[in-house]
Amino acid sequence: MCSNLSQLLTNVQYSLADKVVEEDCFDKLENVAGVDISFTVDNEAVAAAVILELKSREIIEKQTLKIELFFPYMPGFLGVRESDAMISVVNTLEHDFDVLMVNGHGIMHPHGFGLASHMGVLLDMPTMGVAKRLTGGRYIKEATQRDHAHNEVQLIQHDNRVVGAFFRGKYVSVGHKISLETALNIAMRTSIYKIPEPLRQAHILATETFKHKLNGN
């Protein structure tokens, strides 16, 4: 059953990957949102979304949502597990934003359709993926983290196609309706620390909110 489900989901990912647009589909770039999830082994979770003004990196809005994750963890299928929770909290945001930054991969995924692409296609909005490690695929052999300067961008290819880049200890890729060049530019402009601020702030908010809820506050 698990094998059949895995193959079914893989086929869906390959099919939806064809819908991904790898070019900028927006007229302005002023506000960037970040979304992340904090959860326990029993699948209780808090999803958090934060909007930052790109120029000042100041927080415009932040929202959290307590939710339960119903789909089990399966390597390569994070989009199936987490996208519903992320979409739910993003839909609570009242301010407009131009690009959504997701804690996960976009097209830099074994099936070309990671969490960031999943979010982008379902929401029909520009998304970019930022991740700490690779999911898999043959390109992982090309993605060494050595022998290049701290601020140097290392492009990562798969089957002679650029699928993302390694930059300052993180992997950046197109989710949907954005170019890799613009995604990298946003990552650079928002990276005060190792993790870009929209994601760092969303992670802090999700983690702290989750701790308070666990303590009954």
Rank of each mutant, 00 (worst) to 15 (best):
V89G: 01
M74D: 08
Y171R: 07
M128A: 09
S83R: 02
Q13I: 09
V21F: 13
L199I: 08
D27H: 09
Y139A: 14
K211H: 15
V174L: 11
R138L: 10
Q63P: 08
I59A: 13
G104H: 04
F71C: 05
K213N: 12
I140E: 15
Q201A: 09
H203F: 03
N160M: 13
F210R: 05
L54T: 01
V12T: 09
K194S: 15
L122K: 08
Q157N: 14
G175A: 03
G112S: 08
T207G: 12
V172D: 01
E94H: 14
V20Q: 08
D147N: 15
L65I: 10
T182K: 06
G112A: 03
N103V: 07
S117V: 02
E61I: 03
D24G: 07
L5T: 13
V46I: 12
M74I: 15
I87W: 11
H203E: 08
G106S: 06
N43P: 08
I140T: 13
S6V: 08
V21E: 11
F113D: 00
S179G: 09
N4S: 12
V130F: 00
Y73R: 01
F77H: 02
Q154A: 14
G169R: 02
D147S: 13
G216R: 14
M128W: 05
Y171D: 00
H109G: 06
L205M: 08
T190Q: 03
V172R: 01
I195S: 03
E94W: 05
S88Q: 13
K170V: 09
E58T: 08
I107L: 09
M125W: 03
K66V: 13
F70R: 15
K55P: 07
K141D: 14
I195V: 15
G106Q: 03
I59C: 13
E30D: 13
S117H: 04
G175C: 06
T144S: 15
A202H: 06
T190N: 03
L134V: 11
V162W: 01
Q157I: 15
Q157C: 10
F26E: 02
H203V: 02
K55G: 06
V174F: 10
D159N: 15
P198C: 09
R146I: 10
G164T: 05
T207C: 14
G164C: 08
A17I: 06
H150E: 06
H150G: 04
F167I: 02
C2M: 12
D42L: 07
E197H: 03
H95W: 09
R168C: 02
M128C: 10
S191N: 09
N103F: 04
S173T: 03
G129Q: 06
P110K: 05
K170E: 04
K62R: 14
A17M: 07
I107M: 13
Q13V: 07
T135D: 15
K19I: 12
V41M: 12
R138E: 06
E208S: 15
S6F: 04
F210S: 09
D84C: 14
Q201T: 07
R168T: 01
L52V: 09
H118G: 04
Q154C: 14
A165C: 05
F166S: 10
G114F: 01
N215I: 11
G120Y: 02
E30Y: 10
L69W: 04
A131D: 01
I178W: 00
K62G: 06
V90M: 04
S56C: 09
G129L: 03
V172M: 04
